[in-house]
Simulated scan of single mutants.
Amino acid sequence: MADHYEVLGVGRDASAEEIKRAYRKLARKFHPDVNPAPDAADQFKSVTRAYEVLSDPEKRRNYDATGHENGTGGMGGGFGGADFGGFQDIFETFFGAGGSGGMGGGPTGRARRGQDALITASIDLRDAVFGTEKTLEVDTAVVCPTCDGSCCQPGTQPETCTICNGQGAVRRPVRSILGTVMAAETCSACQGFGTVIPDPCRECSGQGRIRERTSLTIKIPAGVATGTRIQLAGRGEAGPGGGPHADLYVEIEVRQHDVFVRDGDHLLATMSVPMTAAALGTTLTLDTFDGEQEVPVKAGTQSGEVQTLKGLGVGRLRSNGRGDLKVTLRVETPTRLDDEQRQLLEQLATVRGEDRVHGTTEQRGLFSKLRDNLKNL
């Protein structure tokens, strides 16, 4: 009988993980469903038997000591011969840690939900004010048009795994501190699906989906802001094996505007007013998202005063109506005067008694004085 270590191609000091990796590699290579060689079935059985012995710590100790599979060992006195690897298999058996096809759970379906995706859409401030529709190019996974998600080449279908008989898991006896128990682990031949695909679809390589660039038109509501995410249920990636589509999330990025600044549902703008116009009063014209609007400037307007244009702001995201457009007026004081302008201003200053202006201070009230006195105590 061939040496089990040689069959798996590992050294006698190989770890349990190395033995498992070697077995899975050889099992895939010699599985009769994928290897048509006449001796593939016998080689697969040898590989499987070698793994059954070397993956069981107690059997491996007996095999290393005696050179054959049936050796004495076991529980011994007390816990001296306890197989804590088998104890771990007990937990795997009862709690399903041994694999997706463990202990009565049945085989795992190939169809799985796709993965959610996140993309960014940049829009203008006007689009955030009124809402808009936008067409996006999305690189995503779609159902394979050749196999329609079945993963099989047209005209073929999955076949029941002959190793686990369609259960998705294989069982083996292991010794533990509780005695000999049956441990279940995912079938390495079918990866827990219970079926194998002898002729995978050539277009999708047996995945049931392909990547494709598609166009997507979405409706962006009024009131969105940078960072707002719109969920499009079922518009994300198609799942493997014909699984359901995931969700697509579109994160909004609002570009800055040259004139308007957003403040919640309101729009802010600043307009310059000549000193004489602010003193005499006038009407300015502002080009807004709703067309040209008149901004009244009353006589005697001071720099920093705000005129509010009701209902010309941003649409509210989750309610009706819009915010306001608030225009801050900035009075401009001339910095360069010709002789005629200077003479006119000097005449005005004389008439108003402002040719010799003395700074004035505001009178402090009783409570202000009392507060300052209390601070000095």
Rank of each mutant, 00 (worst) to 15 (best):
R211I: 06
T162S: 11
T160L: 06
T217G: 06
P173W: 04
H358R: 15
E92Y: 12
L125A: 04
V250I: 15
P32M: 12
A2M: 15
Y5Q: 06
Q341P: 01
A225I: 07
E212K: 14
E137F: 02
C151G: 00
G86C: 10
F289R: 08
G131Y: 04
R24E: 10
T48C: 08
A269M: 11
E18C: 06
E253F: 10
R28V: 04
G243N: 10
A2D: 14
A279V: 02
L366H: 10
K219E: 09
K45F: 11
G311V: 03
F87K: 00
V7E: 07
L337E: 03
P221E: 12
A117I: 13
V7T: 15
D324H: 12
A278Q: 05
F87N: 04
E332V: 07
K134S: 09
A141D: 14
K369E: 12
Q302M: 13
R336N: 11
V143F: 08
H4C: 08
D324P: 13
G149N: 10
L8M: 11
A183Q: 00
D199H: 11
G243V: 04
Q43F: 11
M271Q: 15
G243Q: 07
C201K: 07
E212I: 03
R330N: 06
A189T: 13
A299H: 03
I218Q: 06
S46H: 12
Q167Y: 07
R60S: 07
M103W: 10
Y51R: 00
T335I: 13
Y249Q: 04
G106S: 06
V273Y: 03
G166V: 02
Q153I: 00
S272R: 15
D148E: 15
D33H: 11
A279Y: 03
E294P: 11
A246F: 02
L118H: 11
G192N: 14
Q343K: 14
P145W: 09
A50G: 02
D83V: 04
Q341F: 00
T214K: 13
G101W: 08
T180N: 15
T162L: 09
G106V: 06
I220F: 08
Y63A: 03
E212Q: 14
G76V: 01
E253K: 11
D148L: 15
V254L: 04
V138T: 05
P173M: 07
E159W: 01
S303A: 00
